[in-house]
Design a protein around this nucleic acid. Sequence first.
DNA 1: TCTGACCTGCGA
DNA 2: TCGCAGGTCAGA
Length: 273
Amino acid sequence: MPELPEVENIRRKLASVEGKTIVSIWVGEKKLKKINKKDLEKIKNERIISVKRRNKYLVFEGNNFWLLSHLGMSGQYYWLNNKDTEPKHTHIKIHFNNGNILAYRDPRRFGVFYAYKKTENKDYLKLPELEGLGVEPNDKIFTAEKLNSLLKEKKQNIKSFLMDQAQVCGIGNIYASEILFTSGLSPTREAGKLTKSEKIILYKQIKKIINQAIRMGGSSISDFINVDGNKGDMQNHHLVYGRNGQKCKKCNNSIFKIKQGGRSTFYCKKCQK
DNA sequence: TCTGACCTGCGA
DNA sequence: TCGCAGGTCAGA
């Protein structure tokens, strides 16, 4: 489900747990893609210092632990009110000392949770799941020159390159299509063969689209909602994603849908060369 | 570098 | 009933 903009919006909402202590944690019996129930239950009585994000991972920092959370395709956090009926597919419930219950539901169970002791892993950026990740689009070190060096001699198509989390991280299937459209680049182009000016345009569009999506609260296509139950607004501004057969908003030609690496790509053959 | 598998739900 | 869905990774 969520790409960088959605996860960043969730992180901002979850910042309200900073300073709160975990009184108890409940972990359901159904397995997520990766989860260690025993490790997770050890974070009881820990105080949350901060909630960070790296790529599409949320990182809860406690006094003595790091808790990594990846939402997969269908993960959602929500506040559980004791009076509410608990939604189906709830796998984790974290009770805080102020009475709040943060719950995690995930119908497809592609979500991932890891708990690490801080004594063994002082820097969360060095945790195994985070260490090999690429550059964040909003990091100072992500420059046009950096993108140029990453693209050098890459044989894969540019769509697959954008979705490779070891290169520029946080871009998923929606924003890869949107970025390529506003860059005027065909998704089938060989990444290493973009011209200098095309690379500069691509660099600017990566930053522009990701930041626009963050500002708009992310995209709510089918089931993405933020922790407070609100939807994002970016889906109303998609220019190509999910618009196959519809008219291109720039040239009025049809938007096409193709398969790349098993994923759908949406693009305009006239506007994207 | 590419494909299929992991899951459930939804719409055609 | 079938295909598809915003992600990731093992294995070919």
